[in-house]
Design a protein around this nucleic acid. Structure first.
Lengths: 250, 250
DNA sequence: CGAAGCCTTGAAGAATTTCAAACCTGGTGG
DNA sequence: CCACCAGGTTTGAAATTCTTCAAGGCTTCG
């Protein structure tokens, strides 16, 4: 089993101290993901408080940040890169619960133990907040709690969307929905483009959509042949979003 | 389309005022679901505040409490009965997101609009809280917010469990898991029993598990034949929970 | 260049769905 | 009291989608 950054301590993951030169220049106040993240809830002073207890973590591709059932010692904010959040069944079947992109918060529910395994898909940077300290700040900062709560509600809605997809959509609809959903997310974090990057592999997509890798591949090929998308290295170009929307049966 | 109690105002749903004789004797303080619900977070005084803005709502079987995309004017606490929470795809395919039992809270995320349709499966009673008033109380009561947040986190975990089920389990595993999950929920609200009531129909179960009604029926028959369960009117008896556990592949 | 790791494609197989019909069960009315 | 109807449930057979198994292709990287 791959060691996670969490259980391995510093290990291969570099977890810097909170010194100015170890993080993005300017700290939280200048953080480019602040406005899309939970930190947007905070005043300047509170932000300073948060910054004091933040650490920067770097992850290489394929490296785990934490494992399912690990004691949750910290929560994280993604500032760069992306991660895969997955769960395993005892017999090895895997369900990818989602992908964390820039601005996403890991450990939103402040659980005792993590309910998923988080692994980097690309070189990834995160803000790490020690859990107890963060919980303390939350307890003192009602509008941060409010913000986390709203965020949790949003996650819940996304989870419902995904249940609908898993339970009632066909393979083609699943793939089309997935691509559109990803584009929308990139849009929200300022990556507006017709070309959708796919930092995850086909197997990851399959495990996310409740399909096999072969079916995902076939559906992508089909969408490509039908000129709804164009498969390019590292992603897909959404040639005909309207048609894709139609195929997604949203 | 069936009118929901919400959009129909009083309509066929009886929404009583907050007079003592319109509700369970003793009000919130004596409420039998208080300890399993979000209300457990409140002190006696706060409970009085909450009680002042609560109304009792009665629903007949098949009656809708609210519809997907309805403006969310209130939140609810189930005190008796059960409801089906579902979403529809434009073409009519349905996904049942879950079933609300006694003690469950509807509108947990305080959304602008409901993301699901809620329909009573049996004669049902609920505490209704006008949304703005409730939001006001929440804003003044950090530990109520805290409680709601925890609850939301729990819901999120359940949603993940269900995604795993929908995406990666076989039909038999789905049905077995469903029965065990339902038994566990009944247990938590004090309905400990080897006989699991099924207030919902086969179609509801199918739409919950991402199957067809025929497959659900066949799997139940199979579990019955294999003596893991015994199908009885209105529910099933879990004859062999250990075997069921094994079949569920949890 | 060769190997490893993905990704794609094809053919066969299996689980689940679809279509169709029969079966209960409880309520209604003759 | 019994026949009949309506609704939901079960069962069977055929069809379909998706998976499984197998092989080939493409890229990247030493």
């Amino acid at each position: 089993m791959q060691d996670s950054a969490e259980s391995a301590g510093v290990g291969t993951a570099s977890a810097g101290h909170a010194c100015a030169h170890d993080r993005a220049e300017g700290g939280c106040a200048a953080c480019k993901v602040r406005l899309v993240s939970v930190c947007a809830a905070l005043t300047r002073e509170e932000l300073a408080g948060l910054e004091a207890l933040s650490q920067q973590v770097h992850l290489d591709p394929r490296q785990a940040l934490f494992q399912q059932d690990d004691r949750a010692g910290a929560v994280y904010n993604v500032t760069e890169g992306s991660l895969r959040l997955s769960r395993l069944l005892p017999d090895g079947r895997r369900q990818v619960m989602g992908f964390a992109l820039v601005g996403d918060f890991l450990g939103l529910a402040l659980p005792e133990r993590f309910t998923v395994t988080a692994e980097a898909l690309a070189p990834t940077m995160l803000c790490r907040f020690e859990r107890r300290a963060f919980a303390g700040l939350v307890a003192q900062t009602p509008h941060l709690l409010q913000r986390l709560y709203e965020r949790a509600g949003h996650e819940l809605t996304l989870a419902q969307d995904h249940m609908m997809l898993l339970g009632r959509r066909t393979a083609e609809e699943k793939v089309a929905s997935f691509l559109l959903g990803l584009r929308a997310r990139y849009g929200r974090i300022g990556h507006e483009s017709v070309t959708v990057e796919l930092p995850m592999g086909r197997q990851d997509i399959a495990d996310h959509l409740g399909l096999t890798i072969e079916t995902v591949s076939r559906m992508l090929t089909r969408l490509d042949r039908e000129k709804a998308i164009l498969i390019v290295p590292g992603g897909v170009r959404l040639t005909d979003p309207a048609r894709l929307e139609h195929l997604a049966a949203s």
